[in-house]
Design a protein around this nucleic acid. Structure first.
Lengths: 105, 105
DNA sequence: CACTAACGTAAGTTACGCCTTACGGAATCT
DNA sequence: AGATTCCGTAAGGCGTAACTTACGTTAGTG
C-alpha cells in the first residue's frame, strides 16, 4: 500500500527540499524569496515546490502576481503520526524480543 | 549545520531502504533473509544496509557467519525528536502569524 | 496600452544513485 | 584441509532526478 505519505518521505530525501521546508516553517514566502537564499535558480525552486506540494508538505496561496508558499500542517501531522506509529511498533517488538530471550536462553 | 540526522532523511528517501527498515522493525534478520523478500539482489541489500548504518538507523550484530541487522532505536528516537521539534516550531509560527493578522488586518 | 515583475513549464544536459555481476574473505561443517 | 555458506566490496552500466537556460503567461504599474 503506497500512500501519499510515501511521497513525503521521498520528497524529504532531497537536501534542497528539506532546506526549503525549513525556510517555510519560519514563515511563508514567495518563490523568488526562497531562491535568493539558496544556491540554486528560481525555476529549480519552483520544481522542488511542486514535488513538495504533491507530497502534501506545502500549500500555495496566490497573492497578486506572487505565490505564497507555506507548510501544510495537516500533511506534516500525518507524516509525524506515521513515524510515531513506526517508532512504537519497533520499540514494542524490541521489548517482546528481549522477553523471549530471557525466557529461553 | 549538517548533522547525521540529515543522513537519516536522505537514507529514508529510497523506497527499498524504507522497506528494509520496516522489515527490520518486525524482527532482526540477516542480509540473505531480507534479500529473499525483496525484488533486488543480495549485494544491493548489503549496500542499502550500509547507508542505513551510516545514518544510524540500523545496527549490526555478527552471529557466526551471519550478520544480524536490527533497528537502531536510539537513532530512530533522534529522528523522531527532530520531526517533533520541527512540527512544534511550524505550528508555533503558524499561530503567531494568525495572531498578527487578526491584530493588523 | 506598453512595461515590468513574478512565476510555471519545456527542453536539454549532467551528475548521481541504484542495481547487477564478479570476486575475495571469514566462519562453519564434514 | 577442503567444501560450503554468508557476506562485503569493486567495477561498471544505466535510468532518472536535479539543475540550467529559454520561453510563455498572468497580474500589477506608469
Amino acid at each position: 500500500m503506497a500512500t501519499y505519505v510515501d511521497d513525503a518521505w521521498t520528497a524529504l530525501g532531497d537536501p534542497s527540499r528539506r532546506q526549503i521546508l525549513r525556510r517555510l516553517a519560519e514563515r511563508p514566502c514567495s518563490v523568488t524569496e526562497i531562491a535568493e537564499e539558496l544556491p540554486i535558480s528560481r525555476p529549480a525552486v519552483s520544481q522542488h515546490l511542486r514535488v513538495l506540494k504533491e507530497a502534501r508538505l506545502v500549500l500555495v496561496r496566490p497573492q497578486g502576481t506572487r505565490r505564497i508558499y507555506e507548510v501544510d500542517l495537516q500533511g506534516l501531522a500525518t507524516l509525524r503520526e506515521e513515524l510515531d506509529q513506526f517508532w512504537g511498533k519497533a520499540l514494542e517488538n524490541f521489548k517482546r524480543l528481549v522477553e523471549e530471550e530471557t525466557e529461553q536462553p
